[in-house]
Amino acid sequence: MKSFRDSKGQITIEFILWVGMILVIIVYSSSMVDDAHELNIAMAAARSGAVQGSNMNSFAIYPERAFLEYESSKERLNFPSSIKILRIETINYGFNSTYNRTRIQLRTHVYAPGITQKTYRDSLGSRINYYIRRSITHTFQTQNLTNNLYNPAFSSKYVFTTANVIWI
C-alpha cells in the first residue's frame, strides 16, 4: 500500500475557492470603499474649515480689509460673539460632466443667537463657507484647479460647492 507524505504543503480546493471569491469581492468593493473614504476625508476637512471660520467670527479678529469694512458699516461684527457649528449636511447632485466629478453641495447649520441681522449673518456665513472650501482644497492639494475663493473646491472624485449657511 502506497503511503502519502505531507511534507510539501497542500491547499484545498475549498480554500482556493474562498480566496478567489474574497479577491473578487475586494476588487469590486475597493472602488466603493475608496469613494467613501475620500468623501469622509473631505467632510472631516469641511468640519475643520467650518470651525476655523467660526472661530475667526467668534473672536472678531479678521483680515484687515474685512475689519475696515465692518468698522465702517457693520460695527457689531467687530465684537466677539458666540457662534456654534451644529452640523454640515451634504447633498449629492450626481455626476457633473463639466468638472468630470460627482458634485456635492455642503450646507452648514449654525447657531448664533447674538447675530440676528441678515447682512451680518451673510458676512459671517460667507466666511464659514470660504474656510470650508479652503480646508478641502488644502487637504487634497488642489489649489491649481480652483480660483482665489476656492470655489468650487475639488478632491480627486468630487467637486464641492457651498450653499448659504442656515442660521438656527
Binding site: I41, S48, V51, H138
Partner: peptide
C-alpha cells in the same frame, strides 16, 4: 493632509 490642516487650524485659533 487632514492632520496637518487640523494642526494649522489649532495654531491659528
Amino acid at each position: 493632509n487632514i492632520i496637518s490642516e487640523r494642526m494649522q487650524m489649532v495654531s491659528e485659533t
